[in-house]
């Protein structure tokens, strides 16, 4: 029981509440909407925040330590390991957010969410396979890192765009398309700038998406808004 909640009672025997002030009713609806949104609502904003931070922090040691005149000396293996840890932390947070968003519900949305979650796991298992094979090939660690990372980010972009299609969420689709564009630019420019472009580009993009999530969804309406507009 939430200590802030007032006891909820109906004064009338027939269950109607004639004394319930309309302005109070509006406040109750807004309060409940906020509570639902916070506990169980759309997890996108938190997902963007988690991944924005994971990319910004994860790519930073690579960006700082690569190139002819690195800002800090960090062995490539360590820098890649830090990146891997940040991604692992991001995955754990994303799983928690995903499970929380559908906890205690069943139906179309939770089935979609579950299948969408599986699509990330299955496709990233292939990236793990690619990573193992490139590691075995004896390729230069930075080049190997670039190949695995470029493939991963292309997949991230594709899955974000797919999410936009599944939930008719134009903002998510646009963010996925921007990730694809940033990755393409980084791949065309190549090393060592690749790491800076991904750090500030992909990390910055997702942090901005988290920061401006609400206005973004207003500008780019999605399925939920279309539903609200229906009679």
């Amino acid at each position: 029981m939430n200590a802030n909640d007032k006891p909820v009672v109906d004064p009338a025997a027939d269950g109607s509440d004639a004394g319930f002030d309309p302005a109070e009713a509006l406040r109750v609806m807004q309060d409940q909407d906020a509570k639902v949104d916070q506990q169980f609502g759309n997890p996108d904003r938190k997902m963007y925040l988690v991944w924005g931070l994971a990319y910004l922090i994860g790519y930073l040691p690579l960006a700082l330590s690569r190139g002819a005149d690195p800002i800090v000396e960090i062995p490539i293996g360590i820098a890649l390991a830090i990146f891997g840890l940040c991604i692992a932390a991001g995955i754990v947070a994303a799983v928690v957010l995903g499970v929380r968003a559908t906890r205690g519900t069943r139906g179309e949305s939770s089935r979609r969410g579950m299948l969408y979650g599986f699509s990330w796991w299955f496709s990233f298992m292939c990236i793990a396979g690619l990573s193992i094979q490139i590691g075995r090939s004896g390729a230069d660690p930075e080049i190997a890192g670039l190949i695995v990372n470029g493939a991963s980010m292309a997949l991230v972009a594709a899955l974000l765009m797919a999410g936009g299609v599944i939930w008719l969420d134009v903002s998510q689709f646009v963010i996925g398309a921007c990730v694809a564009l940033i990755t393409l630019i980084a791949l065309v420019v190549g090393l060592p700038a690749y790491w800076w472009i991904m750090c500030l580009g992909a990390g910055g993009l997702l942090l901005l998406a988290a920061l401006f999530h609400r206005p973004l969804r207003r500008i780019l309406p999605d399925g939920a808004l279309a539903q609200d507009a229906a009679p």
């Binding site: 109607s16 509440d17 004639a18 109070e24």
Partner: peptide, 11 residues
């Protein structure tokens, strides 16, 4: 609507 216009049911 009196069915909805009560705090608990509105929530």
């Amino acid at each position: 609507d009196p069915v909805i216009h009560a705090e608990a049911r509105l929530r």
